[in-house]
Simulated scan of single mutants.
Amino acid sequence: MFNSLTGVVTGKFPQKLFIETNGIEWDVTVPDTSLEKIPSVGIKGRVFVWMQHTENLMSLFGFATENERALFFDLLKVDGIGPKGAVKIMSNISVAALAEILDSGDVDALKKVPGVGPKTAGKIILSLKGKLSFVSNEKISSAVRKNNAYSDVIDALVSMGYDRAKAEDAVSKISSELQSDEKFSLLSQNAKEDSVFKKSILELAR
């Protein structure tokens, strides 16, 4: 079984992604919140996948990160939630927010997620509170992006097809190195971002 697909994005629609690899165009169901992190049409990107294969059906589900896929698998453990239901839930709330809700057992917050009623919320909390299977660095990543002065630079690198975690590391390294540069400190914010962007590309190309 394959772990991921890397190719050129050929189409992005609500909860759906088309990606072409070696002449084959794949039709992948993707949560909307995950779809936002995948490169734009015409740009090379990577999507982590899982295939549902039954007697009458074969469907491919995709995610921008391994943590998103892991959370998807966790939701499938809940009685009554199938792949499409999990995608619907994940399309309406970020992975970081959903992971925090599940870890804290906040039923009231979970009930506010579209498509999750009181009964389903109770089942999800009972099944997953304190039992999420992945290391939640997604929440750390979210906090980094929120407080990072160069979040736009990171987003630009991701749109070019670079892995977000690697882009964050490169931007963090470059911006830290430039803090001691007196000429850099005198630049406008736009000029600083442009400089960090160019140097980060060189860093990522190594």
Rank of each mutant, 00 (worst) to 15 (best):
G11P: 02
G11V: 02
G11S: 02
F13Q: 13
P14N: 01
Q15R: 05
Q15P: 02
K16E: 10
L17E: 07
L17I: 10
F18H: 09
E20D: 04
E20M: 05
E20Y: 01
E20A: 11
T21V: 15
G23C: 03
I24E: 03
E25V: 13
W26D: 05
D27G: 09
D27W: 01
V28E: 05
V28N: 00
V28H: 02
V28Y: 06
T29Y: 07
T29A: 12
V30L: 00
V30A: 00
V30F: 00
P31W: 00
P31V: 03
P31R: 00
D32A: 06
D32S: 12
T33K: 09
T33D: 02
S34F: 06
S34K: 03
L35Q: 02
E36Y: 05
K37C: 10
K37N: 10
P39G: 01
S40N: 15
I43T: 15
I43H: 11
I43K: 14
K44D: 09
K44I: 11
K44V: 12
V49T: 15
V49S: 10
V49G: 04
V49F: 08
V49K: 07
W50G: 12
M51C: 13
M51D: 10
M51K: 13
Q52H: 14
Q52D: 15
H53K: 15
H53L: 14
T54Q: 13
E55H: 10
N56Q: 15
N56H: 14
N56E: 10
